[in-house]
Design a protein around this nucleic acid. Structure first.
Lengths: 325, 325
DNA sequence: ATGAAAGCGCTAACAC
DNA sequence: GTGTTAGCGCTTTCAT
């Protein structure tokens, strides 16, 4: 920066001003500085800038897994808005594990992010403590709670599952099953679905739980197990993810089961492929783009010191009724 | 850090040493420092450390899109190894656009990453210039070239497509089509496939190109178009992605076409669901975990100043022959 | 509109 | 094994 200044015949501070707010220097000086930057190939050092200004323009975003499209699409929407505002993203994976999350939070905080996005509302006491003393805006996404660390953007998983159960009941299905991946929020949906459906029908709901993430293969296997071990037939299967639902559809087709007459399916997430399966998949839609942009807006409001009207934003959900149920 | 030192009865540098290399301070001092850290809730400032040491422990990773599992799984494998070695990832999305990539590279370089991972081997002259003068290790992934910026890890897209064409020819298919997403590497595979198949069979290959990313819906639509507009029947469809292939399978089933007898399909990427479609999908497998770890190893070797035996690592590919072809 | 000086919180180099 | 000193490359504050 000093070199650039020398070449432009001004001091180093003037270059700094030209870069941070061009209106602070005269037009002629600005021109000479820009020329000098071009000639020298100068690249600003954001590390030094952050240290001096105590603002890093970095946002830390922690998700369970980047390979799961429900989280990566959130990241995509969130980062788009943040980048437009001059913020860069540091991404961390927590693997659905609060202890792992705590470790990732610690390393990320050492980079002095200006804010942090966290997935879910359950965090270890250590995590909460670190975040509180870091005193930066924090947004928790994908779920809502009355007691967020700072603010949260999401929807009620219980409400979504109850709505699905009511819907299934309304369509007249007398039997139900739930297929669930190893994810705390999915488990809460399963529990709420089971409770509600059993209340409405008085019939027990069969459940299949997987340890890991949802997959097409898992869905196929789940249906096979449901039929073989639970004697399941003629009911509706509530899945924790569209991946499972798609697998169930494939397995049903392979077995010659008519969907939805002999077997109905409800997915979760309304992924891109959902309208294009055969038959088109009924699924619970959560607007992930809106989730990402609402999370960004919440943080931006914090930066602008705009008092949040409410710390919790419920973006809701919607049952996309298609032809599998 | 000075506060911690005061509490522990040592100077600030000693705290720095205790943190960077515990063996440099006496056991008793170390104990007192750790206690002081616990009491004060001290969180190191990695920004200041990076500025002083000229090492940020940050790696910048640029991919076209984080929502595409082929890139996010690479990121996952890459970041796992890097994190174990104490490096953190800054992720950037370039959207398949060299100009966008150049802008992202510029902002990322201002954070002074210790190394950079880039997707593909085609970069703007401006990008190359910035990277050269940054003088950091750079690894280009997903493709190989004799003239990498620094080093590259990938496979030959031409060789993969030629192998697919040879395979299709060997299976006796007399007609072929190619369905391709808007991605430069996919287009190169399409061209190589078309050229090779036409050479072997003398029959023209029908092509369907999409502007955006691959999707199940796109695959269904592609098959419909192939049948309606190209009078395509009884051949093999080479897809640039398993997503397309899956869509073709769904559409074929909906139309009552027997796979592979009346219609054969070859996917690309061998995604998780490929072995579980009905029938199981033949696909070109690229080991994305290996890609990520080989890229990490290449960078790590650079850091250790180990002279690379070769700057280019070809991880190859494999045709996973299943039942759709 | 521009400059001089101080300092952000660390690490590196050199003492002892 | 520990302390002292001097920066890293910026932004901030105060002058002019």
């Amino acid at each position: 920066m000093a070199d650039v200044g020398r070449l432009a015949g001004v001091s180093q501070v003037t270059v700094s001003r030209a870069l941070s707010d061009p209106s602070m220097v005269s037009a002629e000086t600005l021109r000479r500085i820009q020329e000098a930057i071009r000639v020298t190939g100068y690249v600003p050092n954001a590390l030094a800038g952050a240290l001096a200004s105590n603002r890093s323009n970095l946002i830390s975003a922690l998700v369970p897994s980047v390979t799961n499209v429900v989280y990566s699409s959130l990241l995509h929407a969130f980062s788009k808005i943040m980048r437009e505002r001059g913020y860069q993203l540091m991404v961390g994976e927590t693997g659905f594990d609060p202890a792992e999350e705590e470790a990732v939070i610690a390393t990320h905080l050492s980079r002095r992010p200006d804010a942090m996005l966290l997935t879910g509302i359950h965090h270890s006491p250590g995590s909460r403590r670190m975040l509180m003393s870091a005193a930066i805006p924090v947004v928790e996404v994908w779920d809502i709670t009355e007691t967020p660390i700072d603010c949260c953007v999401g929807f009620s998983h219980v409400a979504a599952a109850v709505a699905a159960a009511n819907y299934a009941h309304g369509r007249g299905y007398e039997r139900a099953a739930a297929v669930t991946a190893g994810d705390e929020r999915a488990a809460r949906r399963r529990d709420a679905f089971v409770k509600q459906f059993e209340m409405l029908r008085g019939a027990p709901v069969a459940t299949i739980d997987f340890k890991g993430h949802a997959s097409l293969g898992g869905g196929r296997q789940a249906l096979a197990t449901l039929i073989a071990d639970h004697g399941f037939s003629g009911g509706v299967v509530f899945c924790s993810s569209d991946q499972f639902a798609q697998g169930i559809l494939v397995e049903a087709k392979a077995r010659g089961l008519a969907v939805p007459r002999e077997l109905a399916v409800i997915g979760f997430g309304d992924q891109e492929f959902a309208p294009h399966t055969d038959p088109p998949l009924t699924s619970v839609r959560v607007d992930r783009d809106m989730l990402g942009s609402a999370a960004a807006d919440a943080l931006l409001a914090r930066f602008a010191k705009i008092p949040l009207v409410g710390a919790v934003t419920d973006i809701g959900f919607q049952i996309m009724e298609r032809e599998t149920s």
